[in-house]
Design a protein around this nucleic acid. Structure first.
Lengths: 206, 206
DNA sequence: ACCTGAACACCGTTCAAGT
DNA sequence: ACCTGAACACCGTTCAAGT
């Protein structure tokens, strides 16, 4: 089931699979047509026969990732708890394959990742008496929070400590200086705490 | 003052300026060393003498953008109003040059754009009785919201209507279907409304 | 139907050579 | 100190040619 790269003829599916492995392991920049053809033990040009071109390959890859997302289950006793659990699960799922979700985001398909939980969240919102345009706005705010959390998390991960401030001292050298605040801001943020803070605020605003 | 591309010898500053114009106008992908050298009427290789390489050029460009951000002024009578005004102004400033802030974000320097307002926001938080770690968390949540808003806005702009759902029908074909919600979600979101919703929720959570 | 090699126009970058 | 052209190793892509 796993050793699929046999001597049998190549399929478009094989190409997308191999491309997915490259991106997941070494990032989008590592996915060149030549590297891909090498991994498949085939000439560069046969890739083009199967998937058209690089752009089409990325489209197919994004579709594959979206299809792999699967359904999530709301857990908790109150509507708000259940919505929070959905948001947390979606976030966790996205963080599992950072490079691939970066690709999805680059292709502006991030909202599609939210679809599997949209209906479930709508049910919870209905339980709170929200529907129509109001429910849509809440849904989108939650969606934006989850996506933002993942996108920013990935950014932090890429460049671990690039947080030094150029005009830091100048900006803070006034009477209002709060030493503990400044010290805290110079540390790396607790991402989970930050995610939970925004999540709680949004749910409370419903 | 503007016609600076005279016959005088080239400087690193000129190179960064020209690069900024290219990115601002045609996006990051349009910035190639050869295009840049053409714009400057110079051989490709002299670029390398002045700025090292492409990576260093991008770093310099990011520094320039960050330095150009300038200070903002808190407007409003209550601390919350003043913080909201700062967030709105920062967002507006970032949206002025989408391609350049995309570059800043790609280089993981987005948090640095928040520095000019950080001290001002800290003062407002102090007025609300928040300081230290609590204030830092609030600050970061606000920061995340502004950045997320801009980053997502840019994504939407790039691919105007790529929001069709593959398993849309299946996901929604249950008894809880809310026709108005579904219709609303198929429309483009009102970005300002979405931004204000999250902003209000975060400020209320303080 | 599937795969290949040769070729093209483009990259970023290096380096010896000019003034 | 500043600028150049030639050259290198890489890209994505096309196309005529093979089986």
């Amino acid at each position: 089931m796993s050793a699929a790269s046999e001597a049998t003829t190549l399929t478009a599916h094989d190409v997308v699979e191999a491309a997915g492995r490259i991106v997941e392991k070494d990032g989008l920049d590592a996915l060149t047509m030549r590297r891909l053809s090498d991994d498949l033990g085939v000439a560069v040009t046969s890739i083009y026969w199967h998937v058209g071109n690089r752009r089409a390959l990325l489209d197919a890859l994004v579709d594959r990732v979206l299809a792999d997302m699967g359904m999530l289950e709301a857990i908790g006793s109150t509507p708000r708890e259940r919505m929070a659990s959905l948001a947390r699960q979606l976030r966790a799922k996205m963080l599992e394959r950072p490079h691939l979700i970066a690709l999805v985001h680059e292709q502006a398909k991030t909202p599609l990742m939210f679809l599997p939980v949209q209906a479930a969240m709508a049910a919870e919102l209905a339980a709170l008496g929200h529907r129509g345009a109001t429910a849509a706005l809440s849904l989108r705010a939650l969606q934006m929070h989850v996506i933002a959390s993942v996108v920013l998390e990935r950014t932090i991960e890429r460049h671990p400590t690039a947080q030094r401030a150029p005009f830091d001292d100048a900006a803070w050298s006034n009477d209002l200086a709060d030493a503990e605040l400044v010290a805290e801001l110079s540390r790396e943020p607790d991402r989970v705490e930050l995610f939970e803070f925004g999540l709680k605020a949004l749910l409370a605003a419903l």
